[in-house]
Design a protein around this nucleic acid. Structure first.
Length: 669
DNA sequence: TACATCAGATATTAG
DNA sequence: ATCTGATGTA
């Protein structure tokens, strides 16, 4: 018998999810316990590290997936992470998957589970910005606030309320100076708004986070429950967390609140692009103070991009004053120069980009799906869509809010009002859609009645007010009749909804409201496209009916995901992608076109009149855009552009000049 | 009082 | 593209 020999393998072998990491990535991924902060430059393998860490926790350490939580900012990032974790675990026989999602999706989920601690019933719905405005406007009216005055516009109140929610400040915690007229109005409007919101059995995006924070703060038992459930917490893009998100994470993780401190955050201060919604850079800067036992890792090597791209991005970001000096580096080849394009107008810009895509694909440099067109604002997609369509190139616009289309919103509002009879914003939207003889005056009467009822009983609802209007003689007999018809219609729909699939309910709503006829009457020959949108919605509903295993609360589930998740078509694999720079964060592409790079557009000058210096955030956004590229980066602008109906001369973005000449080329003229 | 229609103003970025 | 405001009509 041969003696047992020990051979030392010079290269230790790792499971697949760890083997493709470099040493510092792997070392970080192997730290399972305790607070961990990873400061990672663009393209340094941040997401790879996170997903590897999660795979290691599950497959390597045998931790139940349900114990693992990962928060992201965008749906796109959440999807990407889910995909990668799945890929790593596909061969293991682990049951279940870790909880990976956006802050809002995860928090809304928990709120549903803890419904008894909320002021809501389980039919509660999520209000978007438009709904929010619909609630705020009548309040301003009631308080006799002169909304003609630009300083007191409904939008201003909305913005202020939302930024208070980012800070987790409730109305009673807000103390404006006595000479601050706007602030004092805000306090009153915010107070009333919350009453209206809660009476509507509805929640807005900011409140999803605030309410959960308060519940965790005030209920030790619930806090303990989630601290125990989520043993391992991960936060992607930590530099973009705002204060209420910070508080939420503290509740779940921090020792002083009973947490386990198994929290892993990754981020890059240079990629902070959400200050406009309250992102607080000090969260990442203070992480070490918050968690003294923290271990940290720095990843500065960029694996993603060719050398010239890395150098150019460094040159740009270096111009930010408020910044810790650091330099990302790469050992990759220099590769192509940065291609800078000037075109006569936006049409020609789009044509150049598209023909370059064709050329690259024709010469096998890359596939359509390797190309992405990044812009500052959604509305810039139109021009490119036009040209792509004419060239029969498959493309997909990410983040076009399908659910924002008027006709889709109308039907969704019916759905919401069917599920949640107290949904003020939806009722207001559909009460005269399609027109049924209930005009603005009547709606204003009901608004007044509603706010009056609310003052007496904070649980009174808009639905109550609608019915009240018909019984108190607040409106004429003719209108009463119409209101009653509306009430009966909704009651019938609600009754029938209980026994119908979503697709059937859709058909019923369309039929009962004669919606198609109304569309055709309103838009004539141009109704086609809108009808197509409705058909797409019907298909989505049909798919949802079939795919959902949990057949209970289908309607509620559908509305929730419609509010929190983008609708995405499935032919994503072969197409050119179009998206905003914000949406591109965390993603990478072989070829990137950064378009519309003009002063005023990108960098945007939208709110650059006072204190905060937006240029630095715009520059970070530019940095994010540039560092998405692996091999080819194009920056383009139009010398003239139609802006609000008039043609304007445009100045190239300052970012061009920040890239040294030797890195730039204009191969296309 | 409500509706149709037209003209004109308005618009970041995410969930 | 969508939301206002003004206007004339039923």
């Amino acid at each position: 018998m041969l003696p047992e020999t020990v051979t030392i393998d010079p290269k230790q072998t790792w499971p697949s999810y760890l083997e493709r990491l470099n040493d510092s990535q792997r070392n970080a991924a192997l730290i399972a316990e305790g607070p961990l902060m990873v400061l990672a430059g663009a393209g340094s393998g941040k997401t790879k590290l996170l997903t590897a860490r999660i795979a290691h926790l599950i497959d390597g350490l045998g931790i139940s997936p349900h114990r693992i939580l990962a928060m992201t900012f965008t749906n796109k990032a959440a999807k990407e992470m889910q995909k990668r974790v799945h890929y790593f675990l596909k061969d293991s026989n682990v049951i279940g998957s870790p909880e990976i999602g956006t802050f809002h999706a995860i928090c809304a989920n928990i709120l549903r589970r803890e419904i008894s601690k909320t002021p809501f019933s389980k039919q509660f719905v999520i209000n978007d910005e438009a709904d929010q405005l619909a609630l705020i406007k009548p309040i301003l009216k009631k308080l006799n606030i002169d909304t003609e005055d630009k300083a007191f516009s409904p939008k201003n109140f909305q913005n202020k309320i939302n930024s208070l929610k980012c800070e987790a400040i409730e109305p009673h915690q807000f103390f404006p100076k006595s000479d601050d007229a706007f602030g004092n109005y805000v306090k009153r409007v915010y107070t009333d708004y919350q009453t209206v919101l809660f009476s509507s059995n509805a929640i807005d995006f900011g409140e999803i986070l605030c309410m959960l924070y308060r519940i965790l703060r005030d209920n030790v038992d619930i806090r303990t429950k989630y601290q125990t459930l989520y043993q391992y917490i991960h936060v992607d893009e930590y530099q973009d967390t705002n204060h209420v998100q910070y508080l939420l994470l503290s509740m779940l993780a921090k020792k002083e609140f009973g947490g386990h401190e198994n929290i892993c955050v990754v981020g890059d201060a240079d990629q902070c692009i959400y200050q406009w919604r309250g992102a607080n850079i000090s969260n990442i800067l203070n992480f070490e103070k918050d968690y003294p036992s923290v271990r940290s890792a720095k990843l500065e090597q960029n694996y993603r991009s060719m050398g010239n791209i890395v150098t150019a991005a460094n040159e740009v970001i270096r111009n930010n004053i408020e910044r810790k000096d650091k330099t990302m580096w790469t050992s990759n080849e220099p590769g192509n120069l940065i291609n800078c394009l000037q075109r006569a107008d936006e049409r020609s810009e789009a044509e150049t980009v598209v023909s370059e895509i064709r050329r690259l694909v024709a010469s096998n440099k890359c596939a359509y799906s390797d190309c992405v067109i990044l812009y500052r604002n959604h509305f810039q997609s139109r021009q490119f869509e036009d040209v792509l369509l004419r060239n029969k190139i498959p493309y997909q616009v990410i983040g076009t809010r399908f659910y924002d289309r008027k006709e889709v919103k109308d039907i969704m509002s019916y759905f919401r009002a069917i599920l949640n009879k107290d949904d003020c914003a939806s009722l207001k939207r559909i009460i005269n859609t399609p027109t049924r003889g209930i005009g603005d005056t009547t709606v204003e009467t009901i608004d007044g009645l509603y706010l009056q009822l609310l003052r007496k009983t904070p649980t009174a609802t808009y639905w109550d007010a609608v019915k009240e209007a018909t019984t108190t003689g607040a409106v004429t007999i003719a209108i009463t009749k119409k209101l009653n018809q509306f009430v009966l219609l909704l009651e019938r729909l609600r009754h029938d909804s209980l026994s119908l699939s979503l697709a059937e309910l859709f058909q019923l709503v369309i039929a009962e409201t004669k919606y198609v006829a109304a569309l055709q009457k309103e838009y004539g020959d141009e109704a086609e496209e809108r009808l197509a949108n409705l058909e797409e919605l019907r298909l989505l509903l049909e798919n949802f009916d079939e795919s959902q295993t949990d057949k209970a609360n289908l309607l509620s589930q559908f509305l929730e995901q419609a509010a929190l998740v983008q609708a995405e078509s499935n032919d994503v694999e072969l197409s050119v992608k179009l998206m905003t720079c914000h949406a591109a964060k965390g993603l990478e592409f072989l070829t990137v076109f950064l378009v519309g790079m003009e002063e005023g557009l990108f960098p945007s000058t939208r709110a650059r009149n006072e204190e905060d210096d937006n240029v630095e955030e715009e520059r970070r956004l530019c940095y994010v855009g540039m560092t998405r590229a692996r091999e080819r980066l194009y920056l383009s602008y139009a010398a003239r552009r139609m802006v609000w109906g008039r043609t304007e001369n445009r100045i190239p973005a300052r970012f061009f000049g920040e890239i040294s000449k030797k890195l730039r080329v204009s191969s296309l003229t």
